[in-house]
Amino acid sequence: GRPPQPKSVEDLLDRINLKEHMPTFLFNGYEDLDTFKLLEEEDLDELNIRDPEHRAVLLTAVELLQEYDSN
């Protein structure tokens, strides 16, 4: 089946190999997954995450988090 739900933002970023963005998220108040899963493209602009590939991966991760919630 699906991988288990990540336990933290750090756990999530670790899985998608984008842990380099951890300080950015923490500094901007994305300390838990409840906050993280509200992330949208405009937020990525504000966080200055410009890499299109990173953005795509992050937004996909957000969608997956929302799916875990609805099940």
Rank of each mutant, 00 (worst) to 15 (best):
I16L: 14
N28I: 00
L47C: 06
D69F: 02
D34P: 05
N48D: 13
E67K: 12
H54K: 07
E40D: 13
L59P: 08
L44A: 03
R55F: 01
L59H: 06
L13Q: 08
L18W: 02
N71T: 13
L65A: 05
S70F: 07
Y30S: 04
I16V: 10
L33E: 00
L58W: 02
L38K: 14
N28V: 00
E41S: 09
V57T: 15
D34I: 03
K7S: 12
N48A: 09
L64W: 14
P52M: 07
P6G: 05
L38N: 13
D43E: 07
K19A: 12
A56D: 12
N17W: 00
L12I: 09
E53G: 10
F25E: 05
N28W: 06
E20Y: 02
A61H: 07
P6T: 05
E63P: 04
K7L: 09
K7M: 09
H21Q: 04
D32C: 09
L64E: 15
N28P: 02
D69H: 09
R55L: 00
T24W: 01
V9K: 04
L65K: 02
R15P: 02
E63K: 15
E67W: 08
E41N: 08
L13C: 00
S8W: 00
D51G: 04
P52S: 09
G1N: 14
P6N: 03
L59V: 04
P4H: 13
P3M: 13
L26W: 06
L58A: 06
E53S: 11
D51Y: 03
E63M: 07
K19Y: 06
N28T: 02
P23Y: 10
D32F: 03
E31L: 09
L59Q: 07
H54A: 11
H21P: 03
E53R: 10
D11T: 02
R55T: 01
E67T: 12
N71K: 13
P52F: 00
P52K: 10
D32P: 00
R50H: 14
V62N: 06
V9M: 07
R2L: 10
L26A: 11
N71A: 14
P23N: 14
T60V: 04
K37Q: 07
D34W: 04
Q5L: 09
E10I: 08
L39I: 13
L33V: 05
T24A: 12
E53N: 11
F27Y: 14
D11P: 01
H54W: 00
Q66W: 10
D11G: 05
R2P: 05
D32G: 06
E40Q: 15
K19I: 12
H54D: 12
D51M: 02
K7A: 12
E31V: 13
L44W: 03
L38Q: 14
N48W: 03
E41V: 07
D11K: 03
E20Q: 10
H54T: 12
A61S: 10
L12A: 02
A61P: 04
L64M: 15
L64D: 15
T35D: 14
T60H: 15
F36D: 04
V57S: 15
R2H: 09
F27E: 15
H21F: 11
K37E: 05
L58Q: 07
V9G: 01
E20C: 11
S8G: 06
F36T: 05
E40L: 08
H54N: 05
R50M: 14
M22E: 10
V62P: 07
L38Y: 11
D69E: 13
F36A: 04
A56I: 06
T24N: 09
N48M: 07
E53I: 06
G29V: 00
V62K: 13
V62H: 06
E42K: 15
N71D: 15
L64K: 15
E46Q: 05
I16P: 00
R2D: 11
L44S: 01
E42C: 10
D45E: 10
L26V: 13
R50A: 09
T35L: 07
S70T: 15
L18E: 03
N17D: 10
E40V: 12
E10P: 09
R50Q: 13
H54R: 02
L58V: 06
L13G: 03
H54G: 02
R2N: 14
D11S: 04
Q5Y: 15
P4Q: 14
P6I: 11
P6S: 06
L12V: 07
L33T: 02
Y68W: 12
T35H: 13
F25A: 02
P52D: 08
E67G: 11
D34N: 11
S8C: 04
V57F: 04
N28A: 13
A56P: 03
F25H: 01
E63T: 10
L47G: 04
R15A: 13
N17S: 10
P3W: 11
P6A: 08
E20I: 10
R15F: 10
L39V: 08
D45R: 08
D69G: 11
R50P: 06
E41T: 08
Q66T: 09
R15N: 12
I49V: 08
T60C: 09
L58K: 06
F36C: 02
N48V: 00
